[in-house]
Nucleic acid binder design. Structure first.
Length: 495
RNA sequence: GGGUUGGUAGCUCAAUGGUAGAGCAUCGGCCUUUUAAGCCGGUGGUUCUGGGUUCGAGUCCCAGCCAACCCA
Protein backbone atom coordinates (compact mmCIF):
# COMPACT_ATOMS: atom_id res chain seq x y z
CA UNK A 1 0.00 0.00 0.00
CA UNK A 2 2.03 2.88 -1.27
CA UNK A 3 -0.17 5.54 0.31
CA UNK A 4 0.09 4.24 3.81
CA UNK A 5 3.40 5.67 4.81
CA UNK A 6 2.40 9.19 3.93
CA UNK A 7 -0.94 8.88 5.67
CA UNK A 8 0.25 7.33 8.89
CA UNK A 9 3.79 8.55 9.38
CA UNK A 10 3.55 8.28 13.16
CA UNK A 11 2.34 4.69 13.19
CA UNK A 12 4.96 3.57 10.70
CA UNK A 13 7.88 5.17 12.48
CA UNK A 14 6.73 4.56 16.01
CA UNK A 15 8.49 1.54 17.43
CA UNK A 16 10.02 0.19 20.61
CA UNK A 17 11.95 -2.79 21.87
CA UNK A 18 8.85 -4.95 22.16
CA UNK A 19 7.83 -4.28 18.58
CA UNK A 20 11.39 -4.90 17.38
CA UNK A 21 11.41 -8.26 19.16
CA UNK A 22 8.16 -9.32 17.56
CA UNK A 23 9.36 -8.26 14.12
CA UNK A 24 12.50 -10.28 14.69
CA UNK A 25 10.40 -13.31 15.63
CA UNK A 26 8.37 -12.85 12.46
CA UNK A 27 11.55 -12.71 10.38
CA UNK A 28 12.84 -15.81 12.12
CA UNK A 29 9.62 -17.72 11.36
CA UNK A 30 9.83 -16.69 7.71
CA UNK A 31 13.43 -17.91 7.57
CA UNK A 32 12.19 -21.30 8.72
CA UNK A 33 9.71 -21.25 5.86
CA UNK A 34 6.72 -20.61 8.11
CA UNK A 35 4.12 -18.04 7.10
CA UNK A 36 2.48 -16.92 10.33
CA UNK A 37 -0.39 -15.25 8.49
CA UNK A 38 -2.67 -18.00 7.33
CA UNK A 39 -5.47 -17.71 4.81
CA UNK A 40 -7.68 -20.17 6.60
CA UNK A 41 -8.07 -22.46 9.56
CA UNK A 42 -11.43 -24.01 10.32
CA UNK A 43 -12.11 -24.73 13.97
CA UNK A 44 -14.60 -27.50 14.72
CA UNK A 45 -16.23 -25.42 17.42
CA UNK A 46 -15.79 -22.43 19.70
CA UNK A 47 -13.64 -22.46 22.81
CA UNK A 48 -16.77 -22.41 24.95
CA UNK A 49 -18.44 -25.21 23.02
CA UNK A 50 -15.34 -27.36 23.40
CA UNK A 51 -15.57 -27.06 27.17
CA UNK A 52 -19.33 -27.47 27.27
CA UNK A 53 -19.27 -30.63 25.18
CA UNK A 54 -16.55 -32.25 27.19
CA UNK A 55 -15.69 -35.85 26.56
CA UNK A 56 -12.27 -37.03 27.56
CA UNK A 57 -10.10 -37.77 24.56
CA UNK A 58 -12.43 -36.09 22.04
CA UNK A 59 -10.45 -34.51 19.20
CA UNK A 60 -11.03 -30.79 18.66
CA UNK A 61 -9.68 -28.11 16.36
CA UNK A 62 -9.80 -24.73 18.08
CA UNK A 63 -8.64 -21.24 17.19
CA UNK A 64 -8.19 -18.10 19.21
CA UNK A 65 -5.95 -15.36 20.45
CA UNK A 66 -3.20 -16.17 22.94
CA UNK A 67 -4.09 -14.35 26.17
CA UNK A 68 -1.81 -15.99 28.73
CA UNK A 69 0.91 -18.55 28.98
CA UNK A 70 2.46 -20.50 31.81
CA UNK A 71 5.78 -22.01 30.92
CA UNK A 72 6.63 -25.20 32.82
CA UNK A 73 9.91 -26.11 31.15
CA UNK A 74 9.23 -29.17 29.07
CA UNK A 75 5.53 -28.42 28.98
CA UNK A 76 3.50 -25.29 28.73
CA UNK A 77 -0.03 -24.06 29.38
CA UNK A 78 -1.57 -21.36 27.28
CA UNK A 79 -4.97 -19.66 27.23
CA UNK A 80 -6.58 -19.00 23.92
CA UNK A 81 -9.68 -16.90 23.56
CA UNK A 82 -12.33 -16.44 20.92
CA UNK A 83 -15.58 -14.51 21.17
CA UNK A 84 -17.23 -17.32 23.09
CA UNK A 85 -14.64 -17.42 25.85
CA UNK A 86 -11.29 -18.91 26.74
CA UNK A 87 -9.91 -22.39 26.86
CA UNK A 88 -6.62 -23.67 28.22
CA UNK A 89 -4.34 -25.60 25.93
CA UNK A 90 -1.44 -27.76 27.05
CA UNK A 91 1.67 -28.43 25.02
CA UNK A 92 4.28 -31.09 25.82
CA UNK A 93 7.76 -31.28 24.42
CA UNK A 94 7.71 -35.05 23.96
CA UNK A 95 4.45 -34.82 21.97
CA UNK A 96 5.28 -31.86 19.73
CA UNK A 97 8.95 -32.62 19.26
CA UNK A 98 11.83 -30.25 20.00
CA UNK A 99 11.43 -27.99 17.03
CA UNK A 100 7.66 -27.45 17.27
CA UNK A 101 7.81 -27.04 21.03
CA UNK A 102 10.46 -24.37 20.65
CA UNK A 103 8.19 -22.52 18.21
CA UNK A 104 5.30 -22.86 20.63
CA UNK A 105 7.33 -21.43 23.50
CA UNK A 106 8.12 -18.35 21.48
CA UNK A 107 4.54 -17.47 20.67
CA UNK A 108 3.59 -14.03 21.90
CA UNK A 109 0.59 -12.74 23.77
CA UNK A 110 -2.03 -11.64 21.23
CA UNK A 111 -0.91 -14.04 18.49
CA UNK A 112 -3.69 -16.02 16.84
CA UNK A 113 -3.27 -19.74 17.14
CA UNK A 114 -5.00 -22.79 15.71
CA UNK A 115 -4.64 -26.04 17.66
CA UNK A 116 -5.53 -29.66 17.16
CA UNK A 117 -5.69 -31.86 20.22
CA UNK A 118 -7.77 -33.87 22.63
CA UNK A 119 -9.85 -32.79 25.58
CA UNK A 120 -8.69 -33.69 29.07
CA UNK A 121 -9.06 -32.43 32.61
CA UNK A 122 -6.11 -31.18 34.63
CA UNK A 123 -5.28 -32.01 38.23
CA UNK A 124 -6.95 -28.79 39.30
CA UNK A 125 -10.10 -29.73 37.39
CA UNK A 126 -9.85 -27.45 34.41
CA UNK A 127 -11.04 -28.75 31.07
CA UNK A 128 -8.13 -28.28 28.65
CA UNK A 129 -6.84 -29.34 25.27
CA UNK A 130 -3.75 -31.50 24.98
CA UNK A 131 -2.13 -30.27 21.81
CA UNK A 132 -1.07 -32.67 19.06
CA UNK A 133 -0.26 -29.94 16.56
CA UNK A 134 -0.68 -26.22 16.16
CA UNK A 135 -0.44 -23.55 13.51
CA UNK A 136 0.23 -19.84 13.87
CA UNK A 137 -2.71 -18.07 12.23
CA UNK A 138 -1.65 -14.46 12.72
CA UNK A 139 1.37 -12.97 14.40
CA UNK A 140 0.75 -9.88 16.51
CA UNK A 141 3.52 -7.35 15.96
CA UNK A 142 2.47 -5.14 18.84
CA UNK A 143 2.00 -6.10 22.49
CA UNK A 144 -1.52 -6.15 23.94
CA UNK A 145 -2.48 -4.06 26.97
CA UNK A 146 -1.76 -5.57 30.38
CA UNK A 147 -3.76 -8.66 31.19
CA UNK A 148 -4.52 -7.82 34.79
CA UNK A 149 -5.16 -4.11 34.94
CA UNK A 150 -6.85 -3.98 31.57
CA UNK A 151 -6.73 -0.77 29.62
CA UNK A 152 -7.64 2.33 31.61
CA UNK A 153 -6.57 5.26 29.48
CA UNK A 154 -9.80 6.67 28.08
CA UNK A 155 -8.16 8.17 25.06
CA UNK A 156 -6.61 4.88 23.96
CA UNK A 157 -9.81 3.03 24.83
CA UNK A 158 -11.81 5.24 22.45
CA UNK A 159 -9.24 5.76 19.72
CA UNK A 160 -8.19 2.11 19.61
CA UNK A 161 -11.41 0.47 20.69
CA UNK A 162 -10.13 -2.92 19.56
CA UNK A 163 -7.61 -2.80 22.41
CA UNK A 164 -10.38 -1.89 24.82
CA UNK A 165 -12.41 -4.87 23.60
CA UNK A 166 -9.43 -7.20 24.00
CA UNK A 167 -8.42 -5.93 27.42
CA UNK A 168 -11.75 -5.20 29.06
CA UNK A 169 -14.30 -8.02 28.78
CA UNK A 170 -17.00 -5.89 30.42
CA UNK A 171 -16.70 -3.41 27.55
CA UNK A 172 -17.14 -6.20 25.07
CA UNK A 173 -20.20 -7.29 27.02
CA UNK A 174 -21.76 -3.83 26.72
CA UNK A 175 -21.52 -3.89 22.95
CA UNK A 176 -22.82 -7.43 22.63
CA UNK A 177 -25.80 -6.31 24.70
CA UNK A 178 -26.25 -3.23 22.59
CA UNK A 179 -26.53 -5.50 19.59
CA UNK A 180 -29.13 -7.58 21.41
CA UNK A 181 -31.08 -4.44 22.33
CA UNK A 182 -31.29 -3.35 18.70
CA UNK A 183 -32.24 -6.86 17.66
CA UNK A 184 -35.07 -6.95 20.21
CA UNK A 185 -36.32 -3.52 19.16
CA UNK A 186 -36.68 -4.89 15.65
CA UNK A 187 -38.31 -8.08 16.86
CA UNK A 188 -40.84 -6.15 18.94
CA UNK A 189 -41.81 -3.80 16.14
CA UNK A 190 -41.89 -6.42 13.43
CA UNK A 191 -44.12 -8.55 15.62
CA UNK A 192 -46.56 -5.65 15.68
CA UNK A 193 -46.65 -5.26 11.94
CA UNK A 194 -44.16 -2.42 11.57
CA UNK A 195 -42.18 -2.39 8.35
CA UNK A 196 -38.52 -1.44 8.54
CA UNK A 197 -37.43 1.08 5.93
CA UNK A 198 -34.32 3.00 4.97
CA UNK A 199 -34.53 6.65 4.00
CA UNK A 200 -31.91 9.11 2.76
CA UNK A 201 -29.21 10.36 5.06
CA UNK A 202 -28.29 13.06 2.54
CA UNK A 203 -30.98 15.65 2.17
CA UNK A 204 -31.39 18.94 0.34
CA UNK A 205 -33.22 20.41 3.32
CA UNK A 206 -32.53 18.95 6.75
CA UNK A 207 -35.81 18.87 8.69
CA UNK A 208 -37.73 17.16 11.44
CA UNK A 209 -35.80 18.75 14.29
CA UNK A 210 -34.10 21.96 15.30
CA UNK A 211 -30.37 21.33 15.03
CA UNK A 212 -27.35 22.49 13.08
CA UNK A 213 -26.66 20.08 10.23
CA UNK A 214 -23.45 18.89 8.65
CA UNK A 215 -23.06 20.11 5.12
CA UNK A 216 -21.55 18.26 2.21
CA UNK A 217 -21.42 18.65 -1.53
CA UNK A 218 -22.54 16.42 -4.35
CA UNK A 219 -20.22 16.94 -7.31
CA UNK A 220 -22.29 15.33 -10.05
CA UNK A 221 -25.50 17.07 -9.00
CA UNK A 222 -23.58 20.27 -8.38
CA UNK A 223 -25.42 21.05 -5.15
CA UNK A 224 -24.92 21.13 -1.44
CA UNK A 225 -26.55 18.45 0.65
CA UNK A 226 -27.00 18.03 4.38
CA UNK A 227 -26.72 14.98 6.57
CA UNK A 228 -30.08 14.30 8.13
CA UNK A 229 -30.83 15.52 11.64
CA UNK A 230 -33.98 13.40 12.00
CA UNK A 231 -35.87 10.63 10.24
CA UNK A 232 -39.29 12.14 10.71
CA UNK A 233 -40.15 13.84 7.45
CA UNK A 234 -39.19 10.89 5.26
CA UNK A 235 -41.17 8.44 7.35
CA UNK A 236 -44.27 10.63 7.30
CA UNK A 237 -44.10 10.70 3.51
CA UNK A 238 -44.40 6.92 3.74
CA UNK A 239 -47.56 7.29 5.83
CA UNK A 240 -48.90 9.43 2.98
CA UNK A 241 -47.87 6.60 0.65
CA UNK A 242 -49.98 4.09 2.52
CA UNK A 243 -47.33 2.38 4.63
CA UNK A 244 -49.35 2.39 7.82
CA UNK A 245 -46.74 1.14 10.25
CA UNK A 246 -43.13 2.00 9.51
CA UNK A 247 -39.94 2.32 11.46
CA UNK A 248 -36.32 3.09 10.83
CA UNK A 249 -33.29 2.63 13.02
CA UNK A 250 -30.66 4.94 11.67
CA UNK A 251 -27.94 7.44 12.22
CA UNK A 252 -28.68 11.11 12.70
CA UNK A 253 -26.03 13.80 12.51
CA UNK A 254 -26.03 17.03 14.45
CA UNK A 255 -23.26 19.56 14.17
CA UNK A 256 -23.24 20.58 17.79
CA UNK A 257 -21.23 20.13 20.95
CA UNK A 258 -19.87 16.82 22.20
CA UNK A 259 -20.57 15.74 25.73
CA UNK A 260 -21.21 12.79 27.97
CA UNK A 261 -24.66 12.68 26.39
CA UNK A 262 -24.01 13.87 22.85
CA UNK A 263 -22.12 12.35 19.96
CA UNK A 264 -22.27 14.14 16.59
CA UNK A 265 -23.70 11.02 15.03
CA UNK A 266 -26.15 9.01 17.05
CA UNK A 267 -28.68 6.29 16.47
CA UNK A 268 -32.37 7.02 16.45
CA UNK A 269 -35.38 4.81 16.22
CA UNK A 270 -38.45 6.44 14.78
CA UNK A 271 -41.75 4.60 14.37
CA UNK A 272 -45.06 5.81 12.97
CA UNK A 273 -48.45 4.23 13.23
CA UNK A 274 -51.44 5.31 11.18
CA UNK A 275 -54.58 5.63 13.30
CA UNK A 276 -52.48 5.79 16.44
CA UNK A 277 -52.01 8.86 18.63
CA UNK A 278 -49.75 9.99 21.45
CA UNK A 279 -51.52 7.67 23.86
CA UNK A 280 -51.13 4.56 21.76
CA UNK A 281 -47.50 5.55 21.24
CA UNK A 282 -46.97 5.75 25.00
CA UNK A 283 -48.19 2.17 25.20
CA UNK A 284 -45.80 1.27 22.42
CA UNK A 285 -42.75 2.86 24.12
CA UNK A 286 -43.57 1.27 27.45
CA UNK A 287 -44.07 -2.12 25.86
CA UNK A 288 -40.96 -1.79 23.74
CA UNK A 289 -38.61 -0.81 26.54
CA UNK A 290 -39.98 -3.46 28.87
CA UNK A 291 -39.69 -6.12 26.16
CA UNK A 292 -36.10 -5.14 25.48
CA UNK A 293 -35.15 -5.06 29.16
CA UNK A 294 -36.75 -8.41 29.87
CA UNK A 295 -35.34 -10.19 26.86
CA UNK A 296 -31.82 -8.74 27.03
CA UNK A 297 -31.33 -8.22 30.77
CA UNK A 298 -33.97 -10.57 32.15
CA UNK A 299 -35.15 -7.90 34.57
CA UNK A 300 -37.18 -4.71 34.78
CA UNK A 301 -35.08 -3.29 37.60
CA UNK A 302 -31.90 -1.64 36.42
CA UNK A 303 -29.06 -0.98 38.85
CA UNK A 304 -26.56 1.73 38.01
CA UNK A 305 -23.25 1.40 39.78
CA UNK A 306 -20.23 3.65 40.16
CA UNK A 307 -16.63 2.67 39.45
CA UNK A 308 -16.32 0.99 42.87
CA UNK A 309 -19.39 -1.10 42.16
CA UNK A 310 -21.58 0.72 44.67
CA UNK A 311 -25.18 1.25 43.65
CA UNK A 312 -25.80 4.79 42.50
CA UNK A 313 -29.46 4.53 41.54
CA UNK A 314 -32.10 2.04 40.69
CA UNK A 315 -34.46 2.39 37.76
CA UNK A 316 -37.71 0.51 38.08
CA UNK A 317 -39.25 -0.16 34.67
CA UNK A 318 -42.25 -2.06 35.98
CA UNK A 319 -45.39 -0.82 34.22
CA UNK A 320 -47.56 1.12 34.30
CA UNK A 321 -45.33 4.15 33.94
CA UNK A 322 -46.41 7.45 35.39
CA UNK A 323 -48.20 9.78 32.97
CA UNK A 324 -48.29 13.38 34.04
CA UNK A 325 -48.82 16.62 32.18
CA UNK A 326 -46.00 19.08 31.73
CA UNK A 327 -47.96 21.73 33.60
CA UNK A 328 -48.73 19.46 36.55
CA UNK A 329 -45.10 18.52 36.87
CA UNK A 330 -43.97 22.13 36.68
CA UNK A 331 -46.54 23.05 39.35
CA UNK A 332 -45.25 20.21 41.54
CA UNK A 333 -41.69 21.46 41.46
CA UNK A 334 -42.01 25.19 40.87
CA UNK A 335 -45.16 26.07 42.76
CA UNK A 336 -48.89 25.57 42.24
CA UNK A 337 -49.30 29.17 41.12
CA UNK A 338 -46.54 28.99 38.48
CA UNK A 339 -48.85 29.49 35.51
CA UNK A 340 -50.82 32.24 37.24
CA UNK A 341 -47.68 34.38 37.63
CA UNK A 342 -46.85 37.13 35.18
CA UNK A 343 -43.94 36.50 32.79
CA UNK A 344 -41.66 38.78 34.84
CA UNK A 345 -42.49 36.98 38.07
CA UNK A 346 -41.90 33.63 36.43
CA UNK A 347 -38.50 34.73 35.25
CA UNK A 348 -37.64 35.97 38.75
CA UNK A 349 -38.81 32.75 40.38
CA UNK A 350 -36.96 30.58 37.88
CA UNK A 351 -33.75 32.36 38.77
CA UNK A 352 -34.50 31.94 42.49
CA UNK A 353 -35.04 28.22 41.89
CA UNK A 354 -31.61 28.04 40.34
CA UNK A 355 -32.34 27.78 36.63
CA UNK A 356 -30.14 29.79 34.31
CA UNK A 357 -32.28 32.11 32.26
CA UNK A 358 -30.91 33.82 29.18
CA UNK A 359 -31.90 37.44 28.73
CA UNK A 360 -33.53 36.78 25.38
CA UNK A 361 -35.64 33.88 26.65
CA UNK A 362 -39.29 34.02 25.81
CA UNK A 363 -41.79 33.14 28.51
CA UNK A 364 -42.26 29.52 27.43
CA UNK A 365 -38.49 29.09 27.33
CA UNK A 366 -38.25 30.18 30.96
CA UNK A 367 -40.62 27.39 31.96
CA UNK A 368 -38.76 24.99 29.69
CA UNK A 369 -35.47 25.92 31.37
CA UNK A 370 -37.02 25.08 34.74
CA UNK A 371 -38.19 21.79 33.31
CA UNK A 372 -34.85 20.88 31.77
CA UNK A 373 -32.64 21.94 34.65
CA UNK A 374 -34.74 21.19 37.70
CA UNK A 375 -37.28 18.57 36.76
CA UNK A 376 -35.92 16.32 34.03
CA UNK A 377 -32.81 15.26 36.01
CA UNK A 378 -35.07 14.04 38.84
CA UNK A 379 -37.11 11.74 36.60
CA UNK A 380 -35.24 8.50 37.20
CA UNK A 381 -38.08 6.02 36.94
CA UNK A 382 -39.91 6.16 33.62
CA UNK A 383 -42.25 9.11 33.35
CA UNK A 384 -44.33 10.23 30.40
CA UNK A 385 -44.48 14.00 30.50
CA UNK A 386 -47.45 14.92 28.32
CA UNK A 387 -48.98 18.05 26.83
CA UNK A 388 -45.95 20.24 26.27
CA UNK A 389 -46.46 23.88 25.21
CA UNK A 390 -47.05 23.99 21.49
CA UNK A 391 -44.19 26.41 20.87
CA UNK A 392 -41.75 23.60 21.68
CA UNK A 393 -43.02 21.12 19.13
CA UNK A 394 -44.20 22.24 15.70
CA UNK A 395 -44.92 18.82 14.26
CA UNK A 396 -47.63 17.70 16.71
CA UNK A 397 -51.36 18.28 16.90
CA UNK A 398 -52.97 20.67 19.33
CA UNK A 399 -54.68 19.19 22.36
CA UNK A 400 -58.47 19.54 22.32
CA UNK A 401 -58.45 20.01 26.13
CA UNK A 402 -55.80 22.73 26.19
CA UNK A 403 -55.22 24.74 23.01
CA UNK A 404 -51.87 26.03 24.37
CA UNK A 405 -50.53 22.50 24.38
CA UNK A 406 -49.88 19.77 21.88
CA UNK A 407 -50.67 16.08 22.16
CA UNK A 408 -47.18 14.90 22.86
CA UNK A 409 -45.19 13.10 25.46
CA UNK A 410 -41.57 13.05 26.42
CA UNK A 411 -40.56 9.80 28.01
CA UNK A 412 -37.93 10.56 30.64
CA UNK A 413 -35.91 7.80 32.25
CA UNK A 414 -32.67 8.06 34.18
CA UNK A 415 -32.96 11.85 34.23
CA UNK A 416 -32.80 12.07 30.44
CA UNK A 417 -35.22 12.46 27.59
CA UNK A 418 -35.25 9.11 25.92
CA UNK A 419 -38.31 9.04 23.71
CA UNK A 420 -40.59 11.81 22.52
CA UNK A 421 -43.86 10.92 20.85
CA UNK A 422 -46.72 12.86 19.28
CA UNK A 423 -50.06 12.78 17.74
CA UNK A 424 -48.65 13.81 14.41
CA UNK A 425 -49.78 16.96 12.67
CA UNK A 426 -51.60 16.01 9.49
CA UNK A 427 -53.22 19.34 8.63
CA UNK A 428 -51.00 20.70 5.85
CA UNK A 429 -52.02 24.32 6.32
CA UNK A 430 -51.59 24.27 10.07
CA UNK A 431 -48.29 22.49 9.58
CA UNK A 432 -47.03 25.14 7.19
CA UNK A 433 -47.95 27.89 9.58
CA UNK A 434 -46.21 26.25 12.51
CA UNK A 435 -43.05 25.55 10.56
CA UNK A 436 -42.97 29.11 9.26
CA UNK A 437 -43.43 30.36 12.79
CA UNK A 438 -40.58 28.15 14.04
CA UNK A 439 -38.32 29.25 11.22
CA UNK A 440 -39.01 32.83 12.29
CA UNK A 441 -37.03 35.49 10.52
CA UNK A 442 -34.10 33.13 10.00
CA UNK A 443 -35.05 32.39 6.42
CA UNK A 444 -34.80 28.73 7.28
CA UNK A 445 -35.90 26.86 4.21
CA UNK A 446 -39.14 24.93 4.47
CA UNK A 447 -39.31 21.44 3.12
CA UNK A 448 -41.94 22.25 0.52
CA UNK A 449 -42.03 18.71 -0.78
CA UNK A 450 -42.98 17.49 2.69
CA UNK A 451 -45.81 20.01 2.83
CA UNK A 452 -46.98 18.92 -0.62
CA UNK A 453 -46.98 15.33 0.63
CA UNK A 454 -49.20 16.33 3.56
CA UNK A 455 -51.54 18.05 1.12
CA UNK A 456 -52.00 14.68 -0.55
CA UNK A 457 -53.37 13.47 2.77
CA UNK A 458 -51.66 11.82 5.75
CA UNK A 459 -53.78 9.61 7.98
CA UNK A 460 -54.02 10.56 11.63
CA UNK A 461 -51.01 8.92 13.21
CA UNK A 462 -48.88 8.58 16.27
CA UNK A 463 -45.11 8.71 16.08
CA UNK A 464 -42.16 8.19 18.37
CA UNK A 465 -38.49 8.80 18.31
CA UNK A 466 -36.24 6.87 20.62
CA UNK A 467 -32.60 7.64 21.22
CA UNK A 468 -31.04 4.21 20.94
CA UNK A 469 -27.74 5.31 22.47
CA UNK A 470 -29.48 6.80 25.48
CA UNK A 471 -31.65 3.72 25.83
CA UNK A 472 -28.48 1.64 25.88
CA UNK A 473 -26.93 3.94 28.48
CA UNK A 474 -29.99 3.56 30.67
CA UNK A 475 -30.29 -0.21 30.28
CA UNK A 476 -26.57 -0.97 30.51
CA UNK A 477 -25.70 1.39 33.36
CA UNK A 478 -23.31 3.53 31.32
CA UNK A 479 -22.95 7.21 32.23
CA UNK A 480 -21.26 8.27 29.02
CA UNK A 481 -22.61 7.91 25.50
CA UNK A 482 -19.02 7.12 24.46
CA UNK A 483 -19.29 3.89 26.36
CA UNK A 484 -22.18 2.65 24.23
CA UNK A 485 -20.79 3.82 20.87
CA UNK A 486 -17.98 1.65 19.51
CA UNK A 487 -16.09 4.49 17.88
CA UNK A 488 -17.08 7.76 19.53
CA UNK A 489 -16.05 10.96 17.81
CA UNK A 490 -12.77 12.43 19.08
CA UNK A 491 -10.63 15.16 17.65
CA UNK A 492 -8.48 13.57 14.94
CA UNK A 493 -4.92 13.26 16.07
CA UNK A 494 -2.50 15.26 13.97
CA UNK A 495 -0.11 12.96 12.08
C1' G B 1 -16.19 28.61 23.88
C1' G B 2 -14.99 28.88 29.68
C1' G B 3 -13.31 26.21 34.20
C1' U B 4 -11.09 21.88 36.75
C1' U B 5 -8.04 17.59 36.59
C1' G B 6 -4.68 14.68 34.08
C1' G B 7 -0.63 13.14 30.18
C1' U B 8 6.18 9.39 33.25
C1' A B 9 8.60 2.13 30.31
C1' G B 10 4.18 -1.94 26.05
C1' C B 11 0.14 -1.71 30.28
C1' U B 12 -1.17 -0.01 35.42
C1' C B 13 1.03 3.42 38.51
C1' A B 14 5.12 5.79 41.97
C1' A B 15 8.85 9.59 42.41
C1' U B 16 10.01 17.14 49.03
C1' G B 17 13.22 21.21 42.91
C1' G B 18 18.68 17.00 43.71
C1' U B 19 21.26 9.89 40.05
C1' A B 20 13.53 8.59 36.90
C1' G B 21 11.38 3.61 40.06
C1' A B 22 7.80 -0.68 41.05
C1' G B 23 4.33 -4.60 39.48
C1' C B 24 2.90 -7.00 35.15
C1' A B 25 4.57 -7.60 30.08
C1' U B 26 9.32 -8.54 27.52
C1' C B 27 14.44 -11.20 27.10
C1' G B 28 17.76 -15.24 29.21
C1' G B 29 18.18 -19.52 32.80
C1' C B 30 15.50 -23.65 35.91
C1' C B 31 10.97 -26.39 36.13
C1' U B 32 6.07 -32.01 32.20
C1' U B 33 -0.89 -30.63 35.40
C1' U B 34 -0.05 -24.66 35.80
C1' U B 35 -3.78 -20.81 35.89
C1' A B 36 -2.63 -13.18 38.21
C1' A B 37 2.12 -20.31 38.12
C1' G B 38 6.83 -20.07 40.79
C1' C B 39 12.31 -19.14 41.48
C1' C B 40 17.01 -16.54 39.59
C1' G B 41 19.13 -12.82 36.36
C1' G B 42 18.71 -8.96 32.60
C1' U B 43 16.71 -5.26 28.87
C1' G B 44 13.55 -1.31 28.43
C1' G B 45 12.53 6.30 29.24
C1' U B 46 12.65 12.64 23.91
C1' U B 47 8.74 12.15 31.76
C1' C B 48 2.86 15.02 25.63
C1' U B 49 5.32 19.42 22.70
C1' G B 50 7.87 24.21 22.81
C1' G B 51 9.75 28.10 25.68
C1' G B 52 11.17 30.19 30.62
C1' U B 53 12.94 30.39 36.02
C1' U B 54 17.03 27.75 38.55
C1' C B 55 23.63 25.63 40.00
C1' G B 56 19.92 21.84 38.93
C1' A B 57 12.98 20.85 36.38
C1' G B 58 9.05 14.77 35.66
C1' U B 59 8.18 18.40 39.68
C1' C B 60 7.78 25.62 39.47
C1' C B 61 6.05 29.49 35.49
C1' C B 62 4.10 30.62 30.31
C1' A B 63 2.16 28.90 25.64
C1' G B 64 0.34 24.91 22.82
C1' C B 65 -1.62 19.72 21.83
C1' C B 66 -4.76 15.64 23.52
C1' A B 67 -8.25 13.54 26.95
C1' A B 68 -11.84 13.19 31.01
C1' C B 69 -15.25 15.84 34.00
C1' C B 70 -18.20 20.32 34.96
C1' C B 71 -20.42 24.69 32.77
C1' A B 72 -22.31 27.53 28.37
Amino acid sequence: MPGVKGEFPVAMEDTNALIEQRRAKLASLREKGIDPFRNKFTPTETCLAARENYQEGRVVHLAGRVTAHRDMGKSMFMDIRDQSGRVQVYAQKNVLGDEQFELFKHLDLADFLGVTGTLFTTKTGEISVKIESFVILAKALRPPPAKWHGLEDTETRYRQRYLDLIANPEVSEVFLKRSAIVREIRAFLEHRGYVEVETPMMQAIPGGAAARPFKTHHNALGCDLYLRIALELSLKRLLVGGMDRVFEIGRNFRNEGLSRRHNPEFTMLEAYQAYGDYESMMDLVQGLVCHVAESVLDTLVIEHKDAEGKGVRTIDLNPPWRRVTYKELVREKAGADWFELGPGQRRQKAIELGAEIGEAYEDFEVTQAVFEKLIEPTLINPTFVTHAPKELIPLAKTSPEDPDCVEVFECCINGQEIAPGYTEQNDPLEQRERLEHQAGGEQQKLDEDFLVALEHGMPPAGGIGLGVDRLCMMLLGQDSIRDVILFPQLRPKAG
